[in-house]
Design a protein around this nucleic acid. Structure first.
Lengths: 196, 196
DNA sequence: GGAGAAGGTAAGCGCATACTTACAAAGCCA
DNA sequence: TGGCTTTGTAAGTATGCGCTTACCTTCTCC
């Protein structure tokens, strides 16, 4: 009798190799030969686990954003600054751990919509939007912008830091407290309150 | 006697087709056949103008960010809000005109560092950093963050709007005044000044 | 020990790709 | 008219790709 399959390490290795190569070289550049080689198995084995390259890629993308990421995000009841710090740490941890794989993977998602958006990423987005909306309703954040805009304003610069940073040679260490302050207080000069 | 070559339209069409396809399908997916077809010439003609595909791609990327973009950016003497509005209009105009080609092209740049960073993009970055630094020195912007951080905080959400937006199904119309306000005033709730 | 599952090796098929060669047609300028 | 340049068409080469087939080995579990 077979157990419901203890997650075969070969399969997992193939998925991780596929994800890596997809980010590094794009869909066409990530060849099945190279994926198999990096996973330490033969190409035949790859095709025994996944009927088509496309199936493999779809499953690999579903690994995003990785284990523990969702749980690290704040819930609607988390206080504002604590929640923002949690987002900051989860997000920058994700980007640093994966060495900027994520921006390239997202670009690949745009190019191949038939691969479908990874459910884990969609769930993360929902959770973020819910958190920011809750803080708006509490009065802790400006109510005059849609919550999605607040999410983008917080997460966008983190994201662009990796993409633009690498492409244009901007390398910035991340100072979480300064980052939080800039987000909450705005960028006006030191002694200025609200603007006209 | 030959004039210094009035920029051959065939060559220009090939470059634009290459840039488009590079964004749409990535380096490997942008085949020389398809580039030639889209430019309305034969594949042989393509190889008569560019010895190798790589040469074509490198030259095509050098077209970025397109004519007039640099001139639309503010100089160090432009006042703060006027300058920010100029950045906003130049940047979002660029992204909208090119239908989100840019994020995918940047991802492609990351994957093929041997193609080199387009000088026009580097110049745009320099100009932006110079503008924000000048505003810091005038006291119009917080002096406690590096100017590159201020650039990323302003431009990052615009950028992420296209990339994350398309990949995750966040679609947000851009309200320039609200965007400016959020950047300058911060995201704290309606009645709150500086934070602890 | 024997069956079945999971893996490997070797070889190959059909196709698309980057790139080439050979040759002909059209336009421009002397 | 005649050379020069630019483009086209037809055909082809070598390589690499996704994917398959056939056969052998190793391990586990009864």
């Amino acid at each position: 009798m077979r157990l419901p399959s203890p997650p075969a390490p070969v399969r997992a290795r193939l998925l991780h190799a596929a994800l890596e190569l997809l980010a590094e070289r794009g869909y066409r550049g990530a060849t099945t030969r190279e994926i198999a080689r990096r996973a330490g198995v033969s190409e035949v084995t790859l095709f025994r686990h996944f009927r088509r390259k496309e199936d493999l890629m779809r499953e690999a993308l579903a690994l995003l954003p990785g284990p523990g990421f969702l749980e690290g995000l704040p819930g609607p009841e988390t206080p504002l600054e604590e929640g923002l710090r949690a987002v900051l740490s989860a997000y920058s941890g994700l980007l640093e751990r994966q060495r900027a794989l994520l921006p390239k993977l997202l670009a690949e998602l745009l190019r191949h919509p038939n691969l479908g958006a990874p459910p884990g990423l969609l769930a993360a987005k929902e959770r973020l939007v819910a958190f920011f909306r809750a803080k708006q309703e509490e009065g802790a954040l400006r109510p005059d912008e849609p919550p999605e805009e607040l999410v983008l304003a917080f997460v966008g610069p983190l994201f662009a830091r990796f993409l633009l940073g690498q492409a244009l040679g901007l390398s910035l260490p991340l100072d979480p407290e300064a980052y939080l302050g800039g987000y909450l207080e705005g960028r006006y000069g030191p002694r200025r309150g609200a603007h006209a």
